[in-house]
Amino acid sequence: MKTMDTNIDIIKSSGEKVKFSLDKLRASLGKSGADKHTVSDIIEQVQKELYHGISTKEIYNRAFALLKKKGSYLASKYKLKKAIYELGPTGYPFERFISAILRYSGYDTHVSEIVQGQCVSHEIDVIATKNGNTTLIECKFHSEEGRNCNVKVPLYIASRFKDVKIHWNSKPHETVLDVGWVVTNTRFTEDALQYGNCIGLYLLSWDYPKHDGLRNRIDRLGLYPITVSTLLTKREKQFLLSRDVVLCRDLIDDVFFLDHLGISESRKSKIKNEIKMLCKI
């Protein structure tokens, strides 16, 4: 493979201009589970189409199309970040997705519950209980790429959590109110991270904490949203999301929803096989 031109300027979704990174492309393709030969082959083909000012979206679309030819489940893993955006436009499916991930980690969870504070009541996105501790989780979902959570988000969440905790501690409860969480599908700004960590919130974003961010957890647990599927149509995904089916693996043992999509047995078999490969079931 010829030497990669690393002086090519590319445009991120935020509008920021940066230098193309071979390492980032190789790493993102590697996370799909593709072997080294496949990754190198795709990089070589993408290289031929690079030009100054190309968008990261164009690079992604080309790499995705090439990867899909190698295997639908590889392309599914590669599109994980985009698939989470596709949970929108409202944040409700994202809240249910976070709830589902926590359930597989041993938590008892509830979504969109009203909790009384000292001053006012609050609607909490996810309440998770485990080992005698209760955690209040606020989900900040962005349906557009390039939008990050600034310091106003943890400031707001910290004040709500404080209000609830004062009232919680004034009454007898079976569990202890643990730290508050802020979860986003994008990233936190430096100020948001600094304030959130200082005030004692637990922050979870696409790539934070390092090696234990949202992407790491999804890959490690095999808990992919149904929107990663390359075989389900957009309409079919929306049908499933409207019925609170957010995880791919939920379709393996529950044929009810696939039956109600009105798809053929052969296509149903391909979808289930894709999910098994994706989730390593």
Rank of each mutant, 00 (worst) to 15 (best):
G180F: 01
L240D: 04
L87T: 01
W181R: 01
E86M: 13
G213E: 07
I275L: 03
D207Q: 09
D259P: 03
F141A: 15
L231I: 07
A75P: 03
T233W: 07
S229Y: 01
S32T: 06
S99Q: 07
H211F: 12
G53F: 11
S40K: 08
G117N: 03
V182D: 00
F97M: 00
T186N: 10
H260A: 13
I10R: 04
S21T: 02
A100Y: 00
D253G: 14
G71R: 00
I8Q: 00
K171Y: 11
A63F: 08
K57N: 11
I199W: 04
F256P: 11
G15S: 02
S32Q: 06
S112H: 04
L201A: 04
L87I: 02
A65P: 05
H110F: 15
I11K: 09
V245F: 04
K268F: 08
L261R: 02
V126L: 01
K36Q: 13
Y202A: 09
M4K: 08
N185W: 00
E113G: 09
T186H: 05
C149A: 09
Y208M: 03
A158E: 12
I281Y: 10
A128T: 00
P89E: 07
A34R: 06
Y156R: 10
I157D: 04
E44W: 15
G200E: 00
F188H: 05
F64H: 10
S76L: 03
I124H: 05
L136C: 15
L155N: 11
V228I: 15
N148T: 12
S13L: 11
I101E: 01
V164G: 04
L241A: 07
V111E: 04
V164E: 05
R215G: 10
H37A: 13
P209G: 03
K12Q: 05
